[in-house]
């Protein structure tokens, strides 16, 4: 009786998960299959299953690899450099700020730690459009328009709050006595941070880095405002396809598929940490 109920429960759980997976994965499936469709198959109503509904072609992939490779490599390189370096700094600043907020008591005027944290996070609540124009003017005067540095700066500013928020949460779960043991053992605060805290939150740092990276990798609006021909990022390139050549869904699908690959590689290689980083730290 109990067993039967458990079975039913399991079935329901897996059923829901399966349904959710289908909903999440379908757009992905659609993009990937479209990148293998003939022009005719794209426009003549929905075609779902390769070799059943349509005969796949590698023409577009081949095209990108040969004719359009040069067009692609620049933005991919830009995106990689910008996303990686900005996320790195966001995570470094975020972790340090989070540690400070968790372990020391601050007071700025009437603001205590919780208020400071909320204030930092609130920077992220504001829609980026609001700052876009101001940033454009700022970077114009600084002579940084159409440089990678401009976007790196902006992304660091935009993603540090997320990193602070996430890392505060992770660090608050660390048992404080381990750090106290290190203090008594003769370590300074700085040594405690680098030799004890950092290794313990490494999985969480990986998770935070991944999130910042994906945000930066996908970011469109600020990139549109602040970059030019030399520093175009991947999302801009993909959008530009549409503007320049009309709805060439096959090419766009190839580019989109390519743009997803780094995130997938990161998630898979960090998977071990992802699971560890998302669940509370034990023992």
């Amino acid at each position: 009786m109990v067993k039967k109920k458990r079975l039913l429960n399991n079935a329901a759980t897996y059923g829901m998960l399966l349904l959710w997976a289908l909903i999440v994965l379908f757009p992905l499936y659609w993009v990937v299959t479209t990148s293998f469709k003939e022009i005719g198959d794209v426009f003549r109503g929905p075609r779902y299953i390769p070799w059943v509904d349509f005969i796949p072609t590698t023409e577009w992939w081949y095209n990108i690899w040969t004719v359009q490779r040069r067009m692609l490599l620049g933005p991919v390189f830009n995106s990689l450099v910008i996303a990686t370096s900005s996320s790195l700094f966001a995570v470094i600043f975020g972790t340090m700020a989070a540690y400070g907020l968790e372990r020391f008591r601050f007071k700025f005027g009437h603001m205590k730690n919780k208020d400071i944290l909320l204030w930092i996070v609130s920077q992220r609540v504001m829609p980026p459009v609001i700052t876009a124009l101001a940033l454009f003017i700022m970077f114009h005067f600084a002579g940084l328009l159409d440089t990678k540095l401009a976007l790196i700066f902006v992304y660091i500013a935009a993603h540090t709050p997320i990193a602070v928020w996430m890392m505060t949460n992770f660090i608050s779960q660390l048992p404080i006595s381990i750090e106290e043991a290190a203090l008594v053992d003769g370590a300074s605060r700085v040594q405690v941070f680098f030799r004890i805290v950092l290794p313990m939150v490494a999985p969480s740092i990986a998770v935070t880095f991944l999130l910042c990276f994906i945000f930066a990798w996908n970011e469109f609006l600020l990139a549109l405002m602040l970059t030019g021909g030399r520093t175009q990022t991947l999302p801009l390139l993909i959008a530009a396809q549409h503007f320049q050549r009309g709805p060439q869904w096959w090419d766009i699908s190839v580019l989109v598929t390519i743009s997803i690959i780094p995130a997938i590689i990161l998630v898979v290689s960090l998977q071990r940490y992802l699971i560890k980083g998302l669940i509370p730290i034990g023992k």
């Binding site: 106290e180 043991a181 290190a182 203090l183 008594v184 003769g186 300074s188």
Partner: peptide, 16 residues
Amino acid sequence: PKDRDIAMVFQNYALY
């Protein structure tokens, strides 16, 4: 603490 030249054993051990 680091300059007091003491050593402490914590209730939950607090091993690294």
